[in-house]
Structures are given as structure tokens and as C-alpha cells.
Amino acid sequence: MTNEEIKRLVDEVKEEVVGWRRHLHAHPELSFQEEKTAQFVYEKLQSFGNLELSRPTKTSVMARLIGEKPGRVVAIRADMDALPIQEENDFEFVSKNPGVMHACGHDGHTAMLLGTAKILTRLRDRIQGEVRFLFQHAEELYPGGAEEMVQAGVLEGVDVVIGTHLWSPLEHGKIGIVYGPMMASPDSFHLRIHGKGGHAGMPHQTVDAIAIGAQVVTNLQYIVSRYVDPIEPLVVSVTQFVAGTTFNVLPGTVEIQGTVRVFDEKLRQSVPQWMERIIKGITEAHGATYEFQYHYGYRPVINDDEVTKVIEETAREVFGDEAVERMKPNTVGEDFSAFLHRVPGSFFYVGAGNKEKGIIYPHHHPRFTIDEDSLEIGVRLFVHAALKLLGQPA
């Protein structure tokens, strides 16, 4: 199909897509609790016709559009969950659920994939192969909905998987492309240091857990600066340091938490060993003991070069060279990696920020929103990319 033909089809559904996004924004649900959201999606898909629908998990939906002839199987994913944030926007479709908000764009992702499904169902007679629409729950909360869907078999027979993220740091009209490593693994750690509490005026009678903890925090930074090749991306961030109750008491215990972000799997396995070696050395040197827990989060998002090239070429053909922006990896996490771990695919950005409209707030902010004109761009790119990927040899 020509660009103009697909644009006409997108124009016919774009108001519906905006309406779906606003409905979802007004009725957000937290991870693993997306029952009404999943039912809304299921009913919309059912109304399109030509789809085989199923519920892989309690709060997810899968729709299969099987073409007239056999061919490749292309999966497209959208996440549906919201965040535990009290919204501070004042538009008419503001969240009706206190303390819950779509502050990351998942309402837009779901609406775009619904629009894509509606258009492609009209084109079933032109489809050679299958398009599989994955409406995923619980992206925001580990262990994540993607892994649950994979375990439920949604990738069986799939040749390629794609997905997108509406991205507020990227201006409306831009498509962000990343080859290879795109997003890091969001691992976490928890450390409890046990010293000996006592009077702050007589520190010699104590084992000062705060002083020991401060040394641990400082020395953990040597992992980034001295253990690892300077061109190898790694983040070790201490985000919580809890100790003490008043000014004249040295506490006996300190609790430290934080996160580790990395792209390389071998390096990822080494970091907790290095951390514990530092922790063990410092605590033993000062007569303290410790408890250390390291939790592996989502895998890194690693895009397949060939699929990413198709996405980039499609974006250039549809929107022009000036719309495409090659972007650097970043160290946020995304459980789309569960799909990419099994099937080649690509995750890309659709610009959703707009300074002229005041759409400037970052993801996970209580005043986050998106430029709704970006929804049309996402739908067009999904439709074009799906048709192009179906046309490639398996």
C-alpha cells in the first residue's frame, strides 16, 4: 500500500485513538491489576472483527490477525499499566483513581496499538502471514508482565517483535532509533550493616555503623571508576541510606539501598561479586557484620540490527530523513527485553514532547502528559513497519 493510502486509513481512526487514550488515562490501573483496562481492550478488539482473541494472563490480551496466505509472524507489543502517582494535571480526562496515574505514556501505547489493529484488520486480504497484537500488563513492576506472557506462549511461532515508547524528551514529529543496546538492566541491592550502637559522645565504645556505611558508599564508586573499562557503561547508585533516631545516639544498624544499571551480561554478573568484596572488607576491618542482597531485574533491551534497520528505513520513507534521530542508549529499564531475549526485534521511540504546548515534564512526573498528535505518528509507523516486515523472507 502507498503512504497516502495508509495515511487516509490512519486519518479515519485518529480521533478514536485519541479518545481511547483519554479513556485509559482517566481510568488507570496499577501493575497486575489491569482488569478493567484489559476488558476495555478486549471489547474494542472484538468489535473490529477478523481477530482471534485470547487472555494469556488475567490482565493481558492477545489478538491474532491471520492473513489469507501463510508467511511471517510479526508481533507488536503495547504495555497498559499505570503508576502509583497522584496526578497534578487539570485537563478534563485527568485520572479518576486517586493515587494512580498514567505517568509514562502506556495509555498512548495501548491506544496506538488498538488503532493499528483496527486498520490492519481491514487489510486482512492483503496480509501474507500473521500480525500478533500483544497488550501487556505490568511493565512497571518486576517481575513484569512480558515474562509472564512469554511463559504463556505468546511468542510461539513469532519471527520478529517490535514495540515503541512515547518519549517526552524527544520532540513531537521525531522517531528515535537505537541500534544494539538501548536500555539497561535495572538491578537493585539492599545492604544492612550491623555495628554496635551507643552514646554519640563516647564513640570509642561503639562500632559506628554510619561511619562504616559512609565508607561503603564511597568505595562502591570505585567499581565504576576503577574496576571497569571507562568506555563500558555502568551505573552504581546508592539511593537510600537509613540510620539513626536522634542527634546524640550512634545507631547500631544502617540500611543502604540502590540500583545498578548495565548493558553487558558478563559485567552484570561480576558487579555483585565486586560489591560484596568491598562491603566485606570494610565491615570486617571495623568489626561490623553485614547482610547483602542483590536482585536481578529486567534484562537489558538489545535491539536486533536487521530489524532496527527496517524500522529506520520505514520511518525515513514515511516521515522523511529529518524525522529520524539516531539516539544513544539510556539506563532506564524496560521489560520488552523479555521478548527480545527470545525473538529478534526492535524497540524505538516516538517523540511525544512539545515545548510550545507546555508538554515538558519527564516520565513518572505528576504533571506528565504527551502531545496527542504523536499518536497518529505511532500508528502510521506500526502499520507500515508491520506490512514491511511481513513482506520480508522468513
Rank of each mutant, 00 (worst) to 15 (best):
T2L: 08
K14Q: 14
E16K: 15
G19Y: 11
R21K: 03
H23W: 14
H25R: 12
H25M: 11
H25V: 14
H27R: 08
L30T: 13
S31V: 09
F32N: 13
Q33W: 13
E34A: 05
E35G: 04
A38D: 03
Q39A: 12
Q39C: 08
V41F: 00
E43R: 15
E52R: 13
T57G: 03
K58S: 15
K58I: 12
T59L: 07
R64S: 14
P70R: 14
V73T: 15
I76D: 10
I76M: 15
M80Y: 05
A82Y: 14
I85T: 07
E87P: 10
E87T: 03
G99M: 01
G99D: 06
D107M: 07
G108Q: 01
L113S: 08
L114N: 11
D125A: 03
I127D: 13
E130G: 07
E130Q: 07
F133E: 04
F133C: 03
L134A: 11
Q136H: 13
A138K: 05
E139C: 13
E140C: 11
Y142N: 11
P143H: 08
A146N: 10
M149R: 12
V150G: 13
L155D: 07
G157D: 06
D159K: 11
I162K: 00
T164L: 01
L166W: 06
W167T: 10
W167M: 10
K174A: 08
G176I: 02
I177K: 13
I177G: 08
Y179L: 00
M182D: 03
M182I: 07
S188T: 15
H190P: 08
K196W: 10
K196Y: 06
G197C: 02
P203Q: 15
D208H: 06
I210R: 04
I212R: 02
G213C: 00
A214L: 06
Q215Y: 05
T218N: 04
Y222T: 03
I231R: 15
I231A: 14
V235D: 15
V236Q: 15
S237A: 00
S237P: 09
S237L: 00
V238P: 14
A243L: 10
T246K: 08
F247K: 11
F247S: 12
V249E: 07
V254P: 11
V254S: 03
G258M: 09
G258H: 10
G258P: 10
T259V: 04
T259Y: 05
V260P: 02
R261H: 10
V262I: 05
L267F: 11
L267R: 11
S270N: 09
V271H: 04
P272R: 13
G281M: 00
I282W: 09
T283M: 01
E291D: 15
Q293I: 15
G297N: 04
P300A: 03
V301I: 12
D304R: 08
V307L: 02
V318R: 02
E325T: 01
R326Q: 06
M327Q: 03
M327K: 02
P329D: 07
N330G: 04
F336G: 06
H341S: 09
P344H: 11
A352M: 03
Y361H: 02
H363F: 05
I377T: 08
V379W: 01
L381Q: 01
A386S: 14
L389N: 02
L389E: 00
